[in-house]
Design a protein around this nucleic acid. Sequence first.
RNA 1: GGUUCCUUGGCCGAGUGGUUAGGCAGCGGUCUGCAAAACCGUGUACGGCGGUUCGAAUCCGCCAGGAACCUCCA
Length: 491
Amino acid sequence: MGNQLFIYNTLSRKKEAFKPLVEGRVGLYVCGPTVYSDSHLGHARPYITFDLLYRYLTFQGNKVRYVRNITDVGHLEDEVEGAGEDRITKKARIEQLEPMEVVQKYMNSFHRNMENLNILPPSIEPRASGHILEQQEMVQQILDNGFAYETNGSVYFDVEKYNQKHKYGILSGRNLDDIKTNTRELDGQSEKKNSFDFALWKKASPEHIMRWPSKWSDGFPGWHLECSVMSTKYLGEHFDIHGGGMDLTFPHHECEIAQNTACSGSGAVRYWMHNNMITINGQKMARSLGNFITLKELFTGKHELLYQAYSPMTIRFFILQAHYRSTIDFSNEALQASEKGLERLMAAMKTLGELKASDSSTVEVAPIMEKCFAAINDDLNSPIAIAHLFDGVKMINSIKAGSEKISPADLDELKEFYQTFVFDILGLKDEEMPVTGNNQTLDGAMELLISLRKDAKANKDWATADKIRDELNAIGIELKDTKDGVEWSLK
RNA sequence: GGUUCCUUGGCCGAGUGGUUAGGCAGCGGUCUGCAAAACCGUGUACGGCGGUUCGAAUCCGCCAGGAACCUCCA
């Protein structure tokens, strides 16, 4: 019980004890990005959330196969704007690039962002364009099973027929009758029996560059197919966890379930997990709404809404300070608070490493460790875990100040715990700029200035001492007089 | 219009019936030649109105405001 992970399953709308299909092995699939522009803050959330899950499951001793796809085929654009072109094709035309060049460019940028955020790479990162044959096979299988029909070279999923045998809408809590009365009429639906049917294979219009031959037409796979296909291929017909943003619940994940069920007779996924959105002024941050800030802009501070740059770890910590199923609101104030909080935590980590043990403890280390693990076990409640880590920070500082004592055994345990929990599980890292090492000339000059200032201070020549400090500050070097001597850093 | 969800102190954000969330800011203090930093301590809350209960931020109802999904979307 103590080490039992509970996760909230969208399918049951309850927290459930997580038991992998095969003891000690976990199959995890997460919807990856469509690579047609730079990732924004909102995109960081699922990848950080599921990175935490991946790290924790691994820490628990599971062998985890983590599959996260790259969508490089391009989903259909809004008909009004894109006139049937997919997003990648459209972007290619604007930038005068080959579609695959666009894909490569933004995939590289995505990978850089992920590395910056200390997000571990998945075990397999399959690309939709590399699984066209498998997708065609699944289309055929669904056709053979009688849950799809072909019209003008396109193949559509027959939702009504599916619903007669299985239930459509189990994940999002919808029923077909409601959908029938509430689905808007969109262009290009004349080919479909019903507006809520969705494409499995789409015939390409003449201007559509990304296309593949098939027995139905030269075209491209449907919106939702790749995840069904690639999860099945790498994780099997049944696997443990599928994650993604809440906005994908319907229709994307609902359709995935329908496709898998239409193929094999049952859904593939045992636990569906959905992270909530990042908002800005209370509204969802989204590419389509134009209210997004890219990760690159956050890291460099180059965006009109940003007061300053925020480091990748500040972003990671900011996201971990909210529970993944709650919305989290972007603001400079919130990010600055996270930055300060993270600095405090990291400073305590350093202090912990330098702590001296006494012969006995006046503090208890076990409760903190237990509470942190209990929090993560409770549906990845990272904000609670972090709150308990801060209780530990207070304890660490008190030991340093001498008002509390810690035994050698407790100290070892505490060190080991913080190392594991903060770095390995939460995936934070110390990103403090190295003060020395990159420029020996500068180091030497600084040593000289600090030593001159020390002499001035010894002579109570405050004018000279302050001049050195203030003028260094003016050119971007900060001096701090600490108990352990003078520290300097580039601002 | 349909479905689902949210409303916590100056800000962010936990918390599902009784016990301090936590971070940031503020305030007080320690340290310091001064400053900064650091550390310690500390107040303010549960959208409104009813109801259930010995007791509700937490359960129920109504009202107000907001959001997500229903269309690509993390």
